[in-house]
Simulated assay, not measured.
Amino acid sequence: MVADIALPRLAKIGAGAIDELGSVVAQLGIRRPVLVTDRYLDETGQAERLVKILQASGADAAVFSGTVPDPTAASLIDGLELVRRHDADGVVGFGGGSPMDTAKALAVLSANGGSIAEYKAPGSYSGSALPIVAVPTTAGSGSDATQFTVITDDETDEKMLCPGLSFLPLAIVVDFELTLTMPPRLTADTGVDALTHAIEAYVSRRASPFSDALALAAMKAISRHLRRAYADGADRDAREAMMLASTQAGMAFSNSSVALVHGMSRPIGGHFHIAHGLSNAMLLPAVTRFSIDSAVDRYADCAKAMGLVDESTAGREAADALVVELTRLCADVEVPTPHSYGIDQAQWEERLDTMADQALASGSPANNPRIPTHDQIVALYREIFSSAARS
């Protein structure tokens, strides 16, 4: 099998990397960037810090801080107007997954036009787009290193997966010091999100030796450092390890794929406005248990990479240890069920068929080791609603 590999052209990774943003933008020939961020990063002065770095390099930067959580097609309108009014020649995504997804969508729409729905899977877009520079502030989404963006349809609440090389940032600036103030809940949700990326990339039907190496490295780091980062946000070693693992996991699934967890997670976020990483965490143990018989050795490799068992442990025993650990990890970082999160059971039930349809339509479940039916997805949604995954 020939693996198709796509990565950012340039990466600056490490403490203080943010100070090199100006030189990165200049190296790409961007003179009029739009910095795409959210209101929090704008109001706390962090966006202004980046503007000054860009200005020092000779760039004329404008700021769009209207990104919303789980961006929708409608939320792109003002940003698209600013990109065009500024005559931008590039976009800088600054923040978590939502600003990153917004920046990617703006880069494509401003150069090629149309509605974002025209770019959703199963299509793949590799046409004209403004160059994208990604500066993540959370250790989880991995969007800085992927050729995907996710935008919600305002009318149907469908989280549309939009793939293609044109959504891949040309450069990334990954500075773990930007994550030191992340609160514990965000640390947990994004950390489990990164672990989900790594595991799904590894067990995916589209995995390759290239993506395997990145995924296993990410799993190893996350298993050692997520609880530490959750317990003590000032733990620099843990923060640095988690930030690098997030980027590695992003590169892994961008060049492999995600699978059933993500396919089921997007509808939860779209319909009930649960953060993407948290909805992944709600699903991860149950979906892993559902899938394990179809890829025992691959799941066993995950357990061994995470240090849960030694290399001599038999495949089934190791794979079962992975499910136990995922259940324990989600308990340790206090992942709620949909019920304890506050979702009404009647509303949950009435949307199960639609969510299952949307999960299947995304294409991600087809990459899973065990490809589910519509009814099996509905059953999994019911399983996770009020009961923590069984160990």
Results as ranks from 00 to 15, higher is better:
Lys159Trp: 02
Val192Asn: 00
Ser115Asp: 14
Asp144Thr: 01
Pro183Lys: 01
Lys120Phe: 13
Leu76Ala: 08
Leu165Thr: 10
Ser57His: 04
Pro184Lys: 02
Arg49Tyr: 11
Leu109Met: 02
Thr179Met: 15
Thr152Gly: 02
Ala107Ile: 06
Leu130Ala: 08
Thr190Arg: 00
Leu178Thr: 00
Gly93Cys: 05
Pro99His: 14
Cys162Arg: 10
Asp101Met: 06
Ala62Cys: 08
Ala105Met: 04
Ala88Cys: 10
Asp189Gly: 11
Ala61Lys: 02
Pro71Arg: 02
Thr138Trp: 06
Asp60Lys: 03
Arg85Ser: 15
Ala134Pro: 00
Pro131Ile: 12
Val108Arg: 10
His86Tyr: 12
Ser57Leu: 05
Asp101Cys: 07
Ile116Cys: 09
Gly127Lys: 09
Asp78Leu: 02
Gln46Gly: 07
Thr67His: 02
Lys159Ser: 00
Gly93Ser: 10
Asp154Gly: 12
Val83Asp: 06
Pro131His: 10
Ala61Gln: 10
Asn112Cys: 06
Phe167Leu: 02
Lys120Tyr: 13
Ala88Trp: 07
Val135Ala: 03
Ala73Met: 11
Thr152Cys: 06
Pro184Ala: 05
Ala171Ile: 01
Ala73Asn: 14
Ala47Ile: 07
Gly97Asp: 09
Arg49Asn: 13
Ala103Gly: 12
Arg185Gln: 15
Leu80Glu: 11
Gly113Leu: 08
Pro183Ile: 14
Gly127His: 08
Pro163Asp: 14
Val150Asp: 03
Ser166Val: 00
Leu180Cys: 11
Val51Ser: 05
Leu76Phe: 08
Ala61His: 12
Leu109Gln: 08
Leu80Val: 05
Leu178Ile: 00
Ser98Met: 04
Asp157Pro: 13
Phe148Glu: 04
Ala171Trp: 09
Gly45Val: 13
Leu168Thr: 15
Ala121Met: 12
Cys162Met: 14
Gly45Ala: 04
Pro131Ser: 14
Ala111Lys: 06
Asp87His: 13
Gln147Ser: 11
Thr149Tyr: 06
Leu170Val: 05
Asp101Trp: 04
Tyr119Ala: 08
Val135Glu: 03
Ala103Ile: 07
Ala111Asp: 03
Val135Lys: 00
Ala88Ile: 01
Glu177Ser: 13
Gly164His: 05
Ser128Lys: 15
Ala74Pro: 04
Ile132His: 04
Gln55Ala: 14
Asp153Arg: 02
Pro71Lys: 05
Val174Tyr: 05
Lys104Val: 11
Leu178Asp: 10
Ala88Tyr: 09
Ser124Gln: 10
Glu81Gly: 03
Thr137Gly: 03
Thr67Ala: 09
Met160His: 08
Gly95Glu: 10
Ser115Glu: 15
Leu168Cys: 12
Pro169Trp: 09
Thr179Arg: 01
Thr149Leu: 07
Leu170Phe: 08
Lys52Cys: 08
